[in-house]
Design a protein around this nucleic acid. Structure first.
Lengths: 91, 91
DNA sequence: TTCATTTATCGTATTTTTACGATAAGAGGG
DNA sequence: CCCTCTTATCGTAAAAATACGATAAATGAA
């Protein structure tokens, strides 16, 4: 799968409905992009768990991950965020 | 507790991050108000479960419930929804 | 090639969520 | 008072989420 075709508001809310993931998402929004390790440094949880949270956000379509050398560069999926905002606005 | 003073976006997202609760919320938005029994009629789950979902939405501050005779009348907490929309917009 | 770095995934334990039936509790009609 | 209606809560079972350590896999430097 390349891009998500469906934006499920319930799924997106679920992904953001966890304080750690909200923090990751906000950090990513401010930092524009970052790698997993940076998040591990600022979050009080193990690397494996951070990676797992990133996967949830990615599966919900909210963020993108691009392999870059030994690390993976994550960034906000701006289109998905826009769509999420639109759906919430129409709520 | 009368009204919620804090609006936690993560908590609100969590409450809406369940397909049943999203449906309840949307129904409530369209119907303006309704009692638990109406939701039981349209949802494929037991009355106890519907009541539980309503409690989650209420605890998140998204809806209000007012006891009305033998039943309870639920409605959207418009201020909370507005605040939720604002927070998502600023995401 | 060997080593260090970085991340994803596996296996697993614990906690939370979701669902149900049974039941209690309150309101109101007869 | 007794019965019906409606909802909330209790107890509980099953599923999902959350967390961890260990480890595999990939990259790139030495």
């Amino acid at each position: 799968m390349k891009t998500k075709t469906t934006c499920d508001i319930s799924l997106m809310c679920k992904a953001l409905g966890n304080p750690i993931r909200t923090k990751i998402f906000k950090y990513l929004k401010d930092a524009n992009k970052c790698i997993c390790g940076q998040l591990v440094d600022i979050l009080p949880i193990a690397q494996a768990t951070v990676s797992q949270h990133l996967k949830v956000l990615k599966d919900a379509g909210l963020i993108n991950g691009t392999i870059n050398g030994p690390s993976t560069c994550y960034c906000i999926n701006k289109a998905a965020l826009k769509e999420f905002k639109r759906m919430v606005k129409d709520f």
